[in-house]
């Protein structure tokens, strides 16, 4: 079972994170103090960590940089009430894998953590991605479904690659915007929806089983159970 360490000093937030992650079948341990958090983080018992930026005694940045210096490379999702862009950069530079600002929706947090876990597990050198009868060749930059080639624009290709690498995971619009375009502001819901629906028209042509699913109120998933 995947073990997650939650280091969070705010009781309500910690409870929410633990509830959401437990619901999804993770084995969760919660710590509210920075010192204890650091001890547990370097213990080697966990597969991923959600880490609050500001903690009593030892702060989140220190924990993650100590972890990285000790050679522990499990995914770390930094969570913080500090919204400044520089804060995000600082968190990621210290060794965090993703950065989420408070307040956040639990599903968003869980979705991000799952994407991080997934990325840690898969081989980065893969050159061919496959989901059912959908194939994406990263070397030839070609996409085929059931053997038939699908012509995609560069952005659509990047979008499909992201969906396929994380197939089965729910990806929120913010996550998609951040991953494909690399920006961290709120682009509005419509923008991402338009790009997804265009991709969907090409990938899920009439008569084929739909692979791209809209998860209402959350985002999108490729080949996910409803």
């Amino acid at each position: 079972m995947t073990r997650i360490l939650v280091i969070e000093d705010d009781e309500t937030t910690a409870r929410e994170i633990v509830a959401e992650l437990s619901k999804r079948g993770f084995d969760v341990e919660s710590v509210s103090d920075g010192r204890d958090g650091l001890v547990r983080a370097v213990s080697g018992e966990f597969d991923a960590i959600t880490l609050d930026r500001m903690l009593p005694h030892v702060d989140g940045l220190t924990i993650v940089s100590v972890m990285r210096k000790s050679g522990i490379d499990i995914p770390v999702l930094m969570i913080s009430a500090l919204t400044e862009v520089d804060e995000r950069v600082r968190g990621l530079r210290a060794g965090g894998d993703d950065y989420l600002t408070k307040p956040f929706a639990s599903e968003e947090m869980a979705a991000r953590l799952e994407v991080l876990l997934r990325r840690a597990r898969t081989q980065p050198r893969e050159t061919m991605l496959r989901v059912q009868d959908l194939e994406l060749d990263l070397v030839k930059r070609e996409v085929r479904r059931g053997g038939r080639e699908i012509a995609l624009m560069p952005t659509e290709f990047k979008l499909l690659e992201f969906l396929m690498r994380n197939s089965g995971e729910v990806l929120t619009r913010t996550m998609i915007f951040e991953a494909i375009w690399g920006y961290h502001f709120d682009p509005g819901t419509n923008l991402i929806d338009v790009h997804l629906s265009r991709l969907r028209r090409k990938v899920d042509a009439a008569g084929l089983e739909p692979l791209i699913r809209t998860i209402r109120g959350s985002g999108y998933a490729l080949n996910a159970a409803s």
Binding site: E16, K102, R216
Partner: peptide
């Protein structure tokens, strides 16, 4: 207001 709103949204989402 953002924190309670986020919780409210989570609740609505769960109910749905």
């Amino acid at each position: 207001l953002r924190t309670p709103l986020t919780r409210l949204r989570a609740l609505l989402y769960r109910v749905r």
